[in-house]
Structure formats: C-alpha cells, structure tokens
Amino acid sequence: MSLLAWLRWSEAPPRLSARSPAEMVLETLMMELAGQMREAERQQRERSHTERKICTGVDYSWLASAPRPSYDLSPGERLQLEDVCSKIHPSYCGPAILRFRQLLAEQEPEVQEVARLFRAVLQEVLERMKQEEETHKLTRQWSLRPRGGLASFKTRARIAPFASDIRTISEDVERDAPPPPRTWSLPEFRAPKTD
C-alpha cells in the first residue's frame, strides 16, 4: 500500500461538505423509509413462515435462498414522497423519524402500508411546522407593536451595575461612619430606652 493512500484516508470526503441541509434531510428520511420497509417485509416473511410451519409441521427454511424484496415504491410515489421530504426543516427530521417509528411499533403494518404511514407522518410534521411558523409570526408582530406601559419603560430603563451613586454598607464601614438606619431589607430592632 502506498503512502498516498494512507494520507488520503485521514481526509474527509469532499462530498459530505457539498450537500445542503435539505438534501441531507431528504436522504435521511428516504433511508429511514427504505429501512422500515425492509424490516416490515422481514417481519411479514417471518409471520408467514411461522404460520406455514404450524400448518404443515415441517420447516423448509434451510432450503430457501435469500428472498428478493417483493414490494418497492413506484417512481411516481417515490417522487411525491421526496417532494414532501424536501419541505421538512432539518430541526423536524428527528421528531418525524421518532413519530414514524412509534406508529410502526403501535400498528405493525404490512409492507404496502408503510409508505402510507410515512406520508401521514410527513403531513403531520408539515402541519406542525406551519402552525409554529404562524405562532411565531403572531408573537413577533405582537412584540413589534408599539405599546405604552411596560414596553416603553423597558426601552427607557438602563441598568448600570457599577454606578457610583449607589450607597452600600461596605462604604459606610470603610469611612468609619455610623451606619444609616436600616431601610434596605430588614427593619431595625432596638431595645427600649430606660430612663
């Protein structure tokens, strides 16, 4: 092996940095769909295999070769799903995958139903994105609206933590002056004077 191969091994592939976040979300969601479809097909095969074994009492699984996938998305359906996936914001990608997995675990669908569930989850995420965007617009408009009272007070008020006109107890101790009556936090308790 040449030294040049070892040097290239430590470099990151240039393709990773060239992809946009939208492309990465699209690829991640479509890979999740493909993986869940394979898993649903495997579970469906296992269920049919166990049913066949119970009915016949004979196990012929050692004779079978690795089965080819029996269900695949049509090109039109794939393009529609990719179009919806491209609209998903990167911050919603993880929650969409978690919701999809949750629905699959609850329903245990057949392979043909996995794409329908995936589309439903994507539509749900898009609706949530739209609602949150509208809420954000409303709160932004509300905060930009001129108002009296507290909002106008906040713009005028300035906090200066090191202002010299604020008296502290330590200043009184340093000057050896008798402390002023306590008015800051606690009342001053004095013993009654006796004559």
Rank of each mutant, 00 (worst) to 15 (best):
L3F: 07
L4C: 04
L4E: 10
W6D: 06
W6I: 12
W9T: 06
E11D: 05
A12V: 09
P13K: 00
A18M: 07
P21E: 05
E23R: 03
E23K: 09
E23H: 10
E23G: 06
M24A: 06
V25F: 02
V25P: 01
L26C: 12
E27Y: 01
L29P: 01
M30I: 07
A34D: 15
Q36I: 02
Q36V: 00
E41G: 13
Q44I: 10
R47W: 11
K53L: 14
I54C: 05
C55K: 05
Y60F: 15
L63R: 08
A64C: 13
R68C: 11
P69T: 14
P69R: 15
S70C: 12
Y71E: 12
L73E: 02
L79S: 09
L81M: 02
C85H: 02
I88S: 01
P90E: 07
P90R: 06
S91Q: 09
S91P: 00
A96N: 06
L98R: 13
R99T: 07
Q102M: 08
L103E: 05
Q107C: 14
Q107F: 14
P109D: 07
E110Q: 11
E110M: 08
V111Q: 03
E113T: 07
V114S: 02
R119T: 01
A120H: 08
V121R: 00
L122S: 02
E124F: 05
M129T: 05
M129K: 02
K130C: 08
Q131G: 09
E134K: 04
Q141I: 04
Q141E: 15
L144P: 09
R145L: 14
P146D: 00
G148A: 08
G149E: 08
A151H: 00
F153Y: 05
F153C: 10
F153W: 07
I159K: 00
A160S: 12
A163V: 13
S164G: 14
I166T: 08
R167Q: 13
T168V: 08
S170P: 04
E171T: 00
E171H: 06
R175C: 09
D176Y: 01
A177G: 07
P178N: 08
P178T: 15
P179Q: 15
P180W: 03
P180D: 13
P181N: 12
P181Y: 04
L186I: 08
E188P: 04
F189S: 06
A191G: 12
K193Y: 01
